[in-house]
C-alpha cells in the first residue's frame, strides 16, 4: 500500500474542559472510502473538520497528502483547495447562481479563467444531472439538488480527497437516494472519500472501511464486511448503535 492520503496520529482536541477528540488515529489510503459513524456528539463531525483545518486541535499529528495540517505556518488555504468538503446544510452561496457557485473558488483560488471555470463547472453539473439548472439560485432548487450542486462545487477544485459531513441528514427521505447515487458513482470512480453518515445501507454497499466513534474516541476501525457481518468483530457500543440505527 502506498503512503496514505490522510494520516491521523494520536489526535486530541479540547474545547476548554470538554474533551472532544481523544487520541484518534486513522489512515485513509488513496481510493479508499471510509464511513465514520457514531452517536451524535461523538466527535465525528469535529474529526472530519480537523482534516481540512476548519477545526484546530491541540495534540497529535495530521497529514493530508504529505502536508502537515497542525504545523505552525501550514498553508491551510492550499490544503483546503485540494480537499473537497460537503456540508450537512449544503452551504451553497445563496447570492450566486448555481454555475457561479461552482466557478467562484476555481477563479479566485485556483486562478482559472472564467471560461475554463465555466467549462469545468458545466461538465460537473452534467455529471450530477443538473446542467439545466445552472442559472438558478440555490433557493430555487430542492434540497437534494442543492446537495448535488454542493458536491459538484467541491469536485470543481479537483480535490485529492472528498469529505462528507452528514450529507443526507437534512434531506427529506425521498431525496436521500439521489445524493447517495452521486456519492456511489464518485466512489466507483476511485475518489478517496471520508463520509460521516448514518446511512448504513450506503456504508455497507460502498465503504471499504467503517470507523465507529463514541465520546471522542475511535472504538472500531474495521473493513465494512467485518463491521456489518453477522459474526461482526465490533465493539459492544457499535453493536448497540447499529441495532438502534437499523431498527429506525
Amino acid at each position: 500500500m502506498s503512503s496514505p492520503v490522510i494520516s491521523i496520529r494520536n489526535l486530541s482536541k479540547r474545547y476548554g474542559e470538554f474533551q472532544v477528540l481523544s487520541d484518534c488515529s486513522l489512515d485513509v489510503a488513496r481510493g479508499e472510502v471510509v464511513v465514520v459513524c457514531g452517536p451524535s456528539g461523538s466527535g465525528k463531525s469535529t474529526l472530519i473538520k480537523t482534516i481540512n483545518g476548519l477545526e484546530p486541535f491541540q495534540f497529535g499529528e495530521l497529514r493530508v497528502d504529505g502536508a502537515g495540517v497542525g504545523d505552525p505556518g501550514a498553508d491551510l488555504r492550499a490544503l483546503r483547495a485540494r480537499v473537497g468538503m460537503v456540508f450537512q446544510h449544503f452551504e451553497l452561496f445563496p447570492h450566486l447562481t448555481v454555475i457561479q457557485n461552482l466557478m467562484l473558488a476555481q477563479v479566485k483560488v485556483l486562478g482559472r479563467s472564467g471560461v475554463e471555470a465555466a467549462e469545468r463547472g458545466m461538465a460537473l453539473l452534467e455529471r450530477v444531472g443538473l446542467a439545466d439548472q445552472r442559472l438558478k439560485r440555490p433557493a430555487q432548487l430542492s434540497g437534494g439538488q442543492q446537495q448535488r450542486v454542493a458536491i459538484a462545487r467541491a469536485l470543481a477544485m479537483d480535490p485529492v480527497v472528498m469529505l462528507f459531513d452528514e450529507p443526507t441528514s437534512s434531506l427529506d427521505p425521498e431525496m436521500v437516494g439521489e445524493v447517495l447515487d452521486v456519492m456511489t458513482a464518485l466512489a466507483e470512480g476511485g475518489m478517496t472519500m471520508v463520509c460521516v453518515t448514518h446511512e448504513m445501507g450506503f456504508a455497507r454497499r460502498v465503504a471499504d472501511r467503517v470507523v465507529f466513534m463514541d465520546r471522542g474516541r475511535i472504538l472500531d476501525d474495521a473493513g465494512a464486511e467485518e463491521f456489518f457481518g453477522a459474526s461482526g468483530r465490533r465493539s459492544a457500543r457499535a453493536g448497540e448503535f447499529l441495532s438502534r440505527v437499523l431498527r429506525a
Binding site: 476548519l54 492550499a78 483546503r80 452561496f93
Partner: peptide
C-alpha cells in the same frame, strides 16, 4: 457559520470569504 466554513473549505482566504461570500449576503 456554515457559510464562512464553506468559503474557507474551498480555499478562500478570510478577506475573500468576507468580500465575496459574507458581505453580499
Amino acid at each position: 457559520r456554515g457559510q464562512s466554513e464553506a468559503a474557507r473549505a474551498l480555499g478562500l482566504g478570510r478577506w475573500d470569504a468576507l468580500r465575496l461570500v459574507i458581505l453580499p449576503q
